[in-house]
Computed example of a mutant assay.
Amino acid sequence: MTHNDIQQVMDWAVAENGIPGIVVDIKDGDRTWFGTAGAADLETGAPRRPGEYAQVGSGGKAFIATVLLTLEAEGALSIDDPVNKWLPGVLDVNGYDGDEITIRHLLSNTAGMYSTGLAPELTNRYATRSAFRAHRFDTYTAAELFRIAVSQPPVAAPGERFVYANGGFYIAEAMVEKITGNSFAAEVERRVFQPLGLDHTYVRGPGEVGFRDPHPRAYSRQFYKDGVDTATVTAENWESVLEDPSLAPLDVTEFETSWTPGNIVSTTGDMIRFVSALASGSLLPPAQHHEMWTTVSTEGANWLPHTRYGLGLFEFDKTAADGRVLRGVGGSYWGTMFFTVSTADGEHVISVQTNTEFKSWKVLRRIYEAGYGVSLG
C-alpha cells in the first residue's frame, strides 16, 4: 500500500461519487498519515483539515457496549441478564418478551427487533427535503424512543439472527443510566473518554444541534422522492425510491440527533485511539474483550458485506494481506459517514469520514483494500 493509492481513491470519491469532502487518517505503528479531498464547505471551498469534529452516528453503539461491559467487569450486571431485570416492562409489548431478550441480544443486534431506522415515526419526519426542514430540530424523550423501537412486531426470535436495529441500543443506553444512577454522558466520560485520553470526543447535550470548531459542513441527498409512502420502504428497496441524485445537496449541519445511539461527536484521531483499544483489548478486561468479539454472522441481513458483528462493532471475515484480523466501527446518516477499522493488535488503524452519508460500499471498500491489501469485493 502507498498513500498515493489512498489519495487516488479519495480524489475519485469526490470527482465521481458525489462526496463533498473526505478525510482519511492513518496510524501504522509509529507512522501517521492524513489525507483529504474535496471541501469542508461547498460555499467557501474551504478544505477539509485534521481535528474536525463530526457525529459518529451508529459508531455510538460501540461506546454504549463498552460502558455496559465495564459495568459487567465490576460485577454490576451480566450481559446475559434479561432486559426485564433492569427495565421491567419496556419490551413487554407488541410481541416482544423482556424476560427472553438479554443485554447481549441488544448489543449484538440479535434481539429480533424491527429495523428502527425504517420506522415511519422517524422516516416520515426526514423522508423528503420539506419534511427534514420542518423536523430537523425535533427532540425525543426516552419514552418516545422506546415506543418507536417496538412500534413494529419482532422479525425474529431472540438470538435467531442478526437484524440491525437502533432500538436495542436506545434500551441499552437507558440501562446504563438505570444501573448507575448517572447520565450516559457522565458514565462514558469516566469509563471511556478519560481512560483513553479522548479529549476531542463528547456527548451532545439536550437540544445541541451544532458542532465545536473546527468542523465541516454536512450535506445530504438522502431523501425520498415526493409522494413516496414510507410504509412501503424496506431494507431491500430503499435505494430505488431516493430522489434524483442530480439535485444539489441540502446543508444539514445543524440537526438535532438525540435519536442517534450515544449521540457522540468525535474526530478521526480520537476514533483511531478508541477503536485501536477495543480491537486490541487494551481497555476491557480479557473476559469482556472476548465477549465483545464473539461475533454473529450478518449474512442475508443486507448489511456490510464480508462482516460478522460483535457487541457494537464488526469484524471482517477476511484478514489483511499479512493475516491480521480487521475490526471496526461505523455509522452513517444524513450528512455524515464515519468508519474506523483496526488490525486486531491495534497497530494499524484507518479512519474515514465524509461530510455526506454512506453513498455505496465501493468507496470504503477501495480505501480499506488499498490500506490493508485485502480484497473485499
Rank of each mutant, 00 (worst) to 15 (best):
124 N>M: 13
109 N>V: 08
91 L>Q: 02
108 S>H: 07
80 D>M: 12
82 P>R: 05
98 G>H: 06
119 A>W: 09
114 Y>H: 15
78 S>W: 04
125 R>P: 04
103 I>F: 10
141 T>P: 00
115 S>D: 10
90 V>E: 01
92 D>C: 09
102 T>S: 03
92 D>H: 07
110 T>I: 11
92 D>Y: 10
101 I>D: 01
87 L>R: 10
118 L>P: 02
103 I>M: 09
110 T>H: 05
139 T>Y: 03
125 R>A: 06
103 I>K: 04
145 L>E: 00
118 L>I: 08
109 N>W: 12
90 V>F: 05
121 E>G: 10
103 I>W: 00
119 A>T: 15
142 A>H: 02
79 I>W: 04
78 S>A: 14
94 N>E: 03
127 A>H: 12
100 E>K: 15
139 T>R: 03
89 G>T: 15
80 D>Y: 14
123 T>G: 02
116 T>C: 11
84 N>E: 06
106 L>D: 02
130 S>P: 13
139 T>H: 02
132 F>L: 12
91 L>A: 07
144 E>L: 00
125 R>M: 14
79 I>P: 00
109 N>E: 09
112 G>A: 06
120 P>S: 05
87 L>I: 12
109 N>A: 12
139 T>P: 00
108 S>F: 08
132 F>G: 05
134 A>D: 13
137 F>I: 10
115 S>H: 13
113 M>Y: 11
137 F>N: 04
83 V>Y: 03
108 S>A: 12
89 G>M: 08
121 E>M: 15
111 A>I: 13
90 V>D: 00
141 T>R: 00
130 S>C: 05
108 S>T: 11
114 Y>L: 07
92 D>L: 09
94 N>T: 14
117 G>A: 13
131 A>G: 12
134 A>V: 13
98 G>Q: 05
129 R>W: 11
126 Y>C: 06
130 S>F: 09
101 I>F: 03
85 K>D: 15
135 H>F: 10
86 W>G: 04
122 L>F: 15
145 L>N: 01
90 V>M: 00
133 R>I: 14
115 S>W: 12
126 Y>P: 04
140 Y>W: 15
102 T>H: 02
103 I>P: 00
96 Y>F: 15
118 L>M: 09
104 R>Y: 13
110 T>Y: 05
138 D>E: 08
102 T>V: 08
93 V>I: 12
143 A>L: 08
82 P>K: 06
81 D>A: 06
134 A>N: 07
85 K>Q: 13
129 R>G: 09
78 S>L: 10
104 R>C: 09
105 H>A: 01
131 A>F: 08
90 V>W: 02
142 A>E: 04
88 P>V: 11
105 H>Q: 11
104 R>G: 02
125 R>D: 06
98 G>I: 09
105 H>F: 08
97 D>H: 13
130 S>T: 15
101 I>M: 03
117 G>D: 10
94 N>K: 10
78 S>Q: 06
127 A>D: 04
141 T>L: 00
86 W>E: 05
88 P>F: 07
94 N>S: 07
139 T>S: 02
143 A>V: 11
107 L>E: 01
94 N>I: 09
80 D>T: 15
133 R>P: 10
84 N>C: 02
129 R>T: 11
